Amino acid sequence: MLGGIPSKKVDIPVTAVFLALYIVGGAIHLAIFLLNKKRGHKFLFSLFIFIFCLARIVTTSLRIATISKPTNIDLAIAASVFVAAGILILFIINLIWSQRVLRSLHPRFGWHTAISTLFRVAYVLIALTLAIVITATVQMFFTLRPRTRTIDRDLQLYAGTFFTIISFLPIPIVLIALAAPRKSKPEKFGKGRFRTKIWILLIGTTLCCLGAAFRCGTSWIKPVPLVRPMPDYYSKACFYIFVFTVEILVVYLYAIMRVDLRFHIPDGAKGPGSYEASLRVGSTSGDVEAKQAQETAAEGK
């Protein structure tokens, strides 16, 4: 098990530190969202990152409660579910921003119906896979049948692999979009230099993918019996680095670099040229892809 057997002397203080960091990070993004809302600058992703931090506040609180009461199976189930589910918000945010970069660099291709449909399918698959992994995780706590546990583990491995692929997707999308020849300059959206947007997105995606890949890789390795010494990749340090630390870095990176200004698009942007056209007429900024992702994911549940 990643992180080994929890210890009150070690895990509770460390988890409490991360709890405080998530509280501060969530407060920062909520404040950014509310301040922007007052001046008519609508950027839903700041709210989504706040929700992610809120989910992680619940996760760390449940982890502390589970360590304090290790025999409480309900707490253990809830903690396991929240650990698996929360990070998906950042994966979806990065994926949507990569779509904005693609549409900026290659408007006709990026806005094509087939490409938009592929992104919608990805959101539906994310929602369905999340439902699958939650069901498998909960069921493993209540069954001793070897066949059922094997199926549940296979479902967890599928979900971990799928989510790792999703976390990685923005990198090839952005790099291929940059490498592909284009006839015109990128359509401008948001504030700041375009290359800075690219670096922010690539760094954030790499951190998310690093954590997802490590968790996925260790889950594929055959579990080690508790009577044997835990390998280094199951250590507490690895758990806190690849689960919570990479997420905290992304949360604060996006706050410090003001993604709310850099990645916003004008309200009503739809089709090639709409980013710049809407900016010229002075429309308030919105989050078209974010709304589409929300609606599509809801349909898939």
Rank of each mutant, 00 (worst) to 15 (best):
M1C: 06
M1Y: 06
G4T: 01
K8A: 14
K9A: 13
V10D: 13
I12N: 05
P13V: 05
T15I: 11
A16S: 15
L19S: 12
L19Y: 10
L21K: 02
V24H: 03
L30M: 03
L34N: 10
K37L: 15
K42C: 12
F43V: 01
F45V: 10
F45P: 06
S46G: 03
F52K: 01
F52I: 01
A55W: 08
R56H: 11
I57K: 00
V58T: 01
I64S: 04
A65M: 02
A65V: 01
I67D: 12
K69W: 15
I73V: 12
A76C: 07
A76N: 11
S80K: 05
V81M: 04
L88K: 09
I89D: 00
I93P: 07
L95W: 01
L95E: 03
L95M: 06
I96V: 15
I96T: 10
R103E: 05
P107K: 00
F109Y: 07
W111R: 00
H112G: 04
H112F: 07
V121M: 15
V124E: 08
I126P: 03
L130W: 14
A136M: 12
M140V: 08
F141N: 09
R145H: 15
R145K: 15
T148L: 11
R149Q: 15
R149G: 14
T150E: 14
T150F: 14
D152K: 08
D154S: 11
L155S: 04
Y158F: 12
Y158D: 08
Y158R: 07
Y158E: 07
G160Q: 05
T161H: 03
T161F: 04
T161I: 04
F163K: 06
F163N: 09
T164Q: 02
I165C: 02
I165M: 04
I166S: 01
V174G: 06
L178V: 02
K183N: 14
P186L: 13
G190E: 02
K191Y: 12
G192V: 03
R193A: 14
R193W: 14
F194T: 00
W199E: 13
I200N: 03
L201F: 00
L201T: 00
L201G: 00
I203G: 04
T205L: 01
C208G: 14
G211A: 00
A213V: 13
A213D: 11
G217A: 12
T218C: 08
T218A: 10
W220L: 12
I221K: 11
I221T: 11
I221S: 10
V224C: 07
L226R: 15
R228G: 11
R228S: 14
R228E: 13
P229Y: 06
M230A: 13
Y234N: 11
S235D: 10
A237R: 11
C238A: 14
F239R: 08
I241M: 10
F242C: 05
F242R: 05
V243W: 03
E247C: 09
I248W: 09
V250S: 06
V250M: 07
Y254G: 07
A255V: 05
A255K: 04
V259H: 09
L261H: 06
H264N: 11
I265G: 08
I265D: 10
K270G: 05
P272F: 03
G273K: 02
Y275E: 00
Y275P: 00
E276P: 09
L279R: 13
R280A: 10
V281C: 11
T284V: 14
D287R: 01
V288T: 11
E289Q: 07
Q294A: 14
Q294G: 12
E299I: 10
G300I: 01
